[in-house]
Amino acid sequence: MPRTCLVVDDSRVVRKVARRILESNGFDVTEAADGQLALDACRQHLPDCVLLDWNMPVMDGITFLQALRKEFGPDNPPVVFCTTENDMDHIEAAISHGAQEYIMKPFDEDILTGKFAQVGLL
């Protein structure tokens, strides 16, 4: 059975690029345009992993991550942040709130699959 990944980003283009890369690496992909929609999706069917943007309307990435960890535990599902926020404060906040990894936009297939491999998803 293929692994599932929830791609959470307010940019349709980013979701589409991530979907193409992940599907070509054997994932079933679902999408959400903000953290609230993502949390609702996780409550319906918890994915094997989450690729998460930081800056989104309604509920941002870090708020979603806090809610996800509170509801589903500290490690499940693994979360990889994918964002333009590249300062150490953001990276440390993401990791301290339970993200497993952190990648910068723009990303390509090598970067994305490399990080997924590092956290044991590929």
Rank of each mutant, 00 (worst) to 15 (best):
D60N: 15
D60A: 12
G61Q: 10
G61K: 06
G61M: 08
I62N: 13
I62C: 08
T63Q: 10
F64L: 12
F64Q: 05
L65F: 03
Q66L: 07
Q66Y: 05
A67C: 14
L68A: 15
R69L: 10
R69V: 09
K70C: 04
K70R: 14
K70M: 08
K70T: 07
F72H: 14
G73Q: 04
G73F: 05
D75C: 10
N76C: 11
N76Q: 11
P77D: 10
P77A: 07
P77N: 07
P78Q: 05
P78G: 10
P78C: 10
V79W: 13
V79Q: 04
V80R: 02
V80A: 07
V80F: 07
C82S: 14
C82H: 06
T83G: 05
T84N: 09
T84D: 11
N86T: 15
D87W: 03
M88D: 12
M88T: 13
M88C: 06
M88P: 08
D89M: 07
D89F: 14
D89S: 12
D89L: 14
I91M: 00
I91V: 13
I91T: 01
I91Q: 01
I91C: 00
E92I: 04
E92G: 01
A93R: 01
A93C: 09
A94M: 01
A94G: 01
I95S: 01
H97C: 04
H97K: 02
